[in-house]
């Protein structure tokens, strides 16, 4: 068995909504992430897909403790991160980094890129000035840029180059784990492949583990060993990348795959599975299965079960997990503790 680097259990993040200025009171909450559990194995890439607002970025931020969860647990390398005080969290932070979607917003425009890349090294006091300069040069070269660029400012670079700089910065302190939050979504089509290849090469070279967040299914399938699908703060399916695309089991995954355009006119889809309506609000998510308001198969399940009961994430065998009443399966064994009993 491969080691688990990261274990997420029943993780929740509810952002409170306040009303009133003088008497500020809580009137509700955005249930951005609402009880998700999954593992990330050492050296693998776990893809996280789902439509905007389903909680992907919040999940990434919770894992790195850039925001504090409402409840649940995150274990990294066997250590429970959530109870850790700042001082104990610091050495853990050194092992995990994030690459953001927006290569424009994630670099300080007033800082030379060399200083941006060096910042994590300075924060963690890992090297002296000379060593830092040397390291920045190495890093720039490693991401395919000239070391002389260290003295330039972000605006002098294209989107693809800025994303390389963001990656160099994430690599600076030799992390084991990187959350890549839509790292190529904002890039030109012809440049995306460069960055995807770079991420793959770095993974091989430095034995990195990735949580790769994206909404483009083809990109996620390409880069991921396993893929998790989220809908409205819940995880609805998780399987190996090949299996998920060949045999999607959850109606939402099926709809996502069916909706994705295929870049081959000989495979035009005549009978697409079109979902009706829009994404419901995460403030008042639908009862039972959150997908039931849009699910084309909701009537296939008897007793209105979809509207009344939240389907647990169950194991179809071979690590193919799905949360849907259509699939009568045993609760995922390794997640037993956290799966509510039907």
């Amino acid at each position: 068995m491969t080691d688990k680097l990261l274990e997420v259990k029943d993780l929740k993040k509810h952002f409170p909504i306040h009303r009133g200025i003088v008497f500020r009171r809580e009137v509700g909450a955005v249930k951005a992430v609402d009880g998700i559990s999954f593992d990330v194995l050492k050296g693998e890439t776990l893809g996280l897909v789902g439509e905007s607002g389903c909680g992907k970025s919040t999940t990434g931020r919770l894992i790195l403790r850039l925001i504090e969860p409402t409840s649940g647990s995150v274990r990294f390398g066997g250590t429970d991160l959530l109870p850790l005080k700042d001082r104990d969290m610091r050495p853990m932070r050194r092992r995990m980094q994030i690459v953001f979607q927006n290569p424009y917003g994630s670099l300080d425009p007033r800082m030379m890129v060399g200083d941006s890349i060096a910042e994590p090294l300075r924060v963690h006091k890992l090297m002296d000035g000379k060593q830092i300069q040397q390291r920045v040069k190495e890093l720039l070269e490693r991401v395919g840029m000239s070391p002389t660029y260290a003295n330039r400012y972000p605006h002098e670079f294209s989107g693809g180059q800025r994303q390389r700089i963001g990656i160099a910065r994430a690599l600076a302190i030799n992390p084991e784990f990187i959350v890549a939050d839509e790292p190529v979504s904002a890039l030109d089509v012809s440049v995306q492949a460069q960055v995807l290849n770079l991420l793959a090469d770095l993974q091989d070279e430095f034995k990195l583990t990735y949580l790769f967040i994206a909404h483009n299914l083809a990109t996620v399938q390409h880069i991921s060993d396993r893929v998790a699908v989220m809908y409205l703060g819940k995880m609805v399916e998780l399987a190996s990348s090949d299996r998920l695309y060949a045999e999607p089991k959850h109606p939402y995954t099926q709809a996502l795959l069916s909706a994705a355009p295929i870049a081959d006119p000989t495979q035009r889809k005549r009978d697409r599975m079109l979902l009706q309506g829009d994404l419901p609000s995460p403030v008042n998510p639908p009862s039972g299965c959150r997908f039931h308001t849009r699910c084309p198969l909701v009537n296939e399940v008897s007793n209105n079960l979809c509207k009344t009961e939240d389907p647990p994430l169950g194991d179809l065998g071979g690590g193919h997990l799905v949360a849907c009443h259509l699939h009568k399966v045993a609760p995922a064994s390794h997640l037993l503790a956290t799966v509510p009993r039907a």
Binding site: S190, V191, A193, L196, N197, Q221, I223, L257, A260
Partner: peptide, 22 residues
């Protein structure tokens, strides 16, 4: 362009990017 995009349902081990920038 056609070579550089990942295709759904097809596992290419490596993409062939267009080098350089527009």
């Amino acid at each position: 362009l056609l070579k550089s995009i990942p295709q759904l349902g097809e596992k290419k081990s490596r993409l062939v990017p267009i080098e350089g920038q527009p």
